[in-house]
Design a protein around this nucleic acid. Structure first.
Lengths: 167, 167
DNA sequence: TATTGTTATACTCTATAACTATA
DNA sequence: TATAGTTATAGAGTATAACAATA
């Protein structure tokens, strides 16, 4: 009960297993913390990192970007402005629709996000190495199942190939 | 490889298990998203929620609060200002040190954070119910082990009783 | 002198509303 | 008219540096 909303380890915890909810909440804070610290090493905020992240395999319009990141289009303008000022992304006029602007990673942007991602990935891997291989494999499988079940419950198929859509 | 930094499900994913890193990263985004949405229902930002969260079982000085939340003390001033303006916390002069100010949840603040926490907890529970009981128990145990191992690696004992300190 | 907290300032991030250009 | 994007504006959140009060 009473999940650790602050991301701070429970104090006065009895020496027992965490509740499932507390465990997942704490783990999420730990992992997001890793991401934020690695991003910060490259002077990237979480918002900038997410922007570069979605651009790794897409070249969306501002419009689409707002949908992907769950932000208002006016927020995207500023986010892309700052990234473009740093030379991490470029705006490209759309050939199909003269109102639209496509956003694309530059080589610098791709390098930066790849480096941050690699370090983050290493952090998570290191943490996972704290578990014996068998248990690590089990955890991974259960997490995948959990995500798949959750996505299904949300009407989304995690493993659906959506390449046909919006590329 | 290449974790989904954006918190967006992979597209073009083959119909296989996610990599351990991707799985944990995605799961963290899902869970943080649940927390943010539930907090937002009470007009709470993640920062405000974390503030109220740490105050649930502490009455720290501004100083201590900065340490607990990992923020600069000047950031705490504003955070507490806004919470106090809403009547969620109060500043109390320290009896022991006339420079210090203690921060304490009000009844309103406690109610608000409890409601948000309960809804968040329900979200995570619902997600976990997507797994059969046995697997759920296994996941919970592995997550606890993972956190304990990670905390140990960081020189922190998750289960240490720190009540003696800073209360 | 050192520590506690606030203030001044600047920047990022986000949203709403109004606007321009194109469809 | 509707949609794509920007601008104006406002507010939260964060940090650095300088400051006042107290230890």
């Amino acid at each position: 009960m009473s999940p650790r909303l602050a991301g701070t380890p429970a104090q006065a915890a009895t020496r027992e297993e965490l509740s499932p909810v507390d465990g997942l909440a704490q783990l999420s804070f730990v992992i997001m913390g890793m991401l934020e610290r690695r991003a910060a090493e490259h002077d990237l905020s979480l918002a900038q990192t997410r922007l570069l992240g979605v651009l790794r395999d897409r070249r969306p319009a501002m419009n689409e970007l707002a949908r992907l990141l769950g932000l208002d289009k006016s927020s995207i303008t500023g986010l892309v402005d700052r990234a473009e000022r740093r030379g991490l992304v470029v705006r490209v006029p759309s050939a199909a629709d003269r109102r639209a602007v496509l956003v694309s990673l530059t080589d610098d942007g791709r390098l930066l996000v790849s480096q941050a991602a690699a370090r983050f990935e290493a952090d998570v891997s290191t943490m996972l190495n704290g578990l014996p291989p068998r248990q690590r494999a089990t955890l991974s499988r259960l997490v995948s199942q959990l995500l798949a079940a959750h996505a299904a419950g949300q009407g989304v198929d995690l493993f659906a190939t959506v390449d046909a859509e919006a590329r």
